[in-house]
């Protein structure tokens, strides 16, 4: 089944292969809230025509391949870490959100009070 550009329906998601998202009983599996956010953000950008799906898929396959090359033991694999890397690279390559933009925003986040109410999981080293 082919990719339908701009299609609002979910069926362009790959169900098999290296870039397929984790599923349990056919349903997508998110282990942390940020994973669903980055998934939804990606889908919303795609739906709005910010990129064609294959561009993202190529980035995702590259991110997964990069992770596998760096982690030959395969331990602690996190699919949505690769997804986030892929989105970040795609947005940087397309000059939609540059690395500088993102760093600037992260610096601003770092200035927030320690008790700021955000869903940051303090998982800095995964």
């Amino acid at each position: 089944m082919s990719v339908v550009e701009g299609d609002e329906l979910p069926v362009h998601l790959d169900v098999a292969g290296a870039a397929a998202p984790p599923r349990l009983n056919g349903e997508l599996v998110f282990t942390e809230p940020w994973e669903s956010r980055v998934f939804g953000v990606t889908m919303a950008l795609h739906q709005s025509g910010a990129f064609v799906w294959d561009e993202f898929k190529d980035q995702l396959i590259a991110a997964i391949g990069g992770w596998e090359a760096a982690h030959p033991d395969g331990q602690d694999y996190r699919y949505y870490r690769c997804w986030l890397d892929a989105l970040q690279h795609l947005l940087a390559d397309r000059r939609i959100v540059t690395t500088g933009d993102l760093d600037h925003r992260l610096d601003a986040f770092a200035q927030r009070p320690a008790d700021h109410d955000h869903d940051h999981d303090h998982d800095h080293d995964r």
Binding site: P33, R37, F39, G40, L45, L91, I96, L106, D123, H124
Partner: peptide, 30 residues
């Protein structure tokens, strides 16, 4: 890089600010 949750939040906040995505649409898609 900072943790993925923070990076995801930063990306989303920038995209929302630039009106490239609508958080309600993101919610609905999720």
């Amino acid at each position: 890089l900072p943790g993925p949750a923070l990076r995801a939040e930063a990306l989303e906040s920038l995209l929302v600010e630039r009106q490239l995505i609508d958080p309600k649409v993101v919610d609905g898609l999720i």
